[in-house]
Simulated scan of single mutants.
Amino acid sequence: MKSIYLKLFTLACILAQVLADECNQELKVNSQQDLDSIRQCRLFTGTITVDQTDASSLKFNGVETLDGSVILTGNNALTQLSFPQLVSVSNQIKLENNRALVSVDFPMLQSVRSFEIIVHPALQALSFPAELSHIDTFTVTDTTITRVDGLKAAQIRDFTVTNNIYLKSVTASNMTAINGMLMIADNSPGFSLDLSSVQSVRSIVFRTVGTLNLSQLSKINGDVALIANSFDEFALSKLQSIDGTLTISNNKRLSKLSFPELTRLGGTLSITDNPELNTIDAFAKLQEVIGTLDVTGDFAELRLPDLNDVRGGLNVQTSSNKFSCQDMEKLRNGVIKGNSYTCKAAVINPKSGISRGNGGGLGTSAASMTLIHPRWSDLFVVLGTVSALFILVF
């Protein structure tokens, strides 16, 4: 009898070891059968890779916690994807270039370090019914999704939503801090963004945004770029400081701008080519600009009543014949520290003072670089160096 028990115990140990090996591996998936081989693993440790398979439908049954990553790339036949029990992923979920994928299902997902969906021209929706509450990086780029539901994270590092031509809105009203990049660009015309609880952000890029809510934002630790948006008004009523450059360019409908509590700008102030912005009185309390003051357009008034320190130069040019340079002249005596000073009214073609390669300056302005550069990730390289370069130039 003892020998039978010993044999059973030995068999159990062998089975346990086999199970442990199956639940701890680098798994290369070619079919549903490969995924079914780990369906008994509530905890799976390793990376699951699905690359250039012929599978049309895949279901990740059984796995609740993934200590690792799941990466699906280049599966041209894949139309349906499901993770029915998956709750937590310690590293990455990455879906890239699965061009036939119509639906992806994450009914239980609550936590993942990095979530990326890139180049999915057939994908229609993205939803997290169990509420995605813990995430470090969120990226949705080049898809046809029409909505994103269930984002409930209080903090995040990078938040990127770009080139989703049918996506009309994103709401993340639980979010209070974005510790890295906030990049919203080239989604559906009139795109609406609700980040109404966010209090701090490192860097911001908004392009082709229609409406937004950042009513609680009080601190920006890096650069801000507002480029080619369709909103009529832009206001950050609680914002007190920006540690980097502020670029406001090519917003064709922008007629009202308001930063009533902003006192310090750690880089350059660049406001260019906003044709409906006739009066610039947004900076009632602004005292310090560490970079250059560069304002061009068709404005009749520019008011900076508290400004007492500009470390770089000044360039103010407008096509309006109603503008007077009298107030700008007052800044020459002790306020403008840089050697460059230009103030002109009734100019046919107002030009940015940011050098475009004419002997020792920047090769390209922050605004124009933003508009023409095909890689949004490079925008921050440009904006992040503008302030320091202007101090050197001027």
Rank of each mutant, 00 (worst) to 15 (best):
S3N: 06
L6E: 05
K7S: 13
A12E: 03
V18D: 08
A20I: 03
C23D: 03
Q33H: 11
Q33D: 12
D34P: 14
L35A: 07
D36M: 14
S37V: 11
R39Q: 15
Q40I: 07
Q40G: 05
C41M: 12
T45D: 04
I48P: 09
S56E: 12
S57A: 15
L58H: 10
G74T: 03
N75T: 07
A100R: 14
V102K: 15
V104R: 11
V104Y: 03
M108E: 12
V112D: 03
S114N: 12
V119F: 06
V119R: 08
H120W: 03
P121Q: 13
L126C: 11
P129G: 07
E131T: 06
T137I: 09
T139V: 11
I145T: 04
T146Q: 13
G150W: 03
A153T: 05
D158N: 14
F159M: 01
T160M: 06
T162D: 00
N163T: 07
Y166I: 03
S169A: 15
N179G: 14
M181T: 10
A185W: 00
P189T: 10
F191H: 07
L193T: 01
L195Y: 02
V201Y: 00
R207N: 12
G210A: 09
G210I: 09
V224Q: 00
V224N: 02
A225C: 10
I227D: 08
S237Y: 01
S237V: 07
L239Q: 04
Q240A: 13
I248G: 06
N250R: 12
K252V: 10
S255K: 11
S258N: 14
S258W: 03
L265W: 07
T272A: 15
L277A: 06
T279D: 13
K285S: 11
G291H: 04
A300N: 11
A300Y: 01
V316T: 06
K322Y: 08
Q326P: 00
M328W: 00
K330Y: 07
R332P: 05
R332L: 11
Y341R: 02
Y341H: 03
V347M: 10
L362I: 11
L362M: 14
T370F: 07
R375G: 01
R375P: 00
G384H: 00
T385P: 00
V386E: 13
S387V: 02
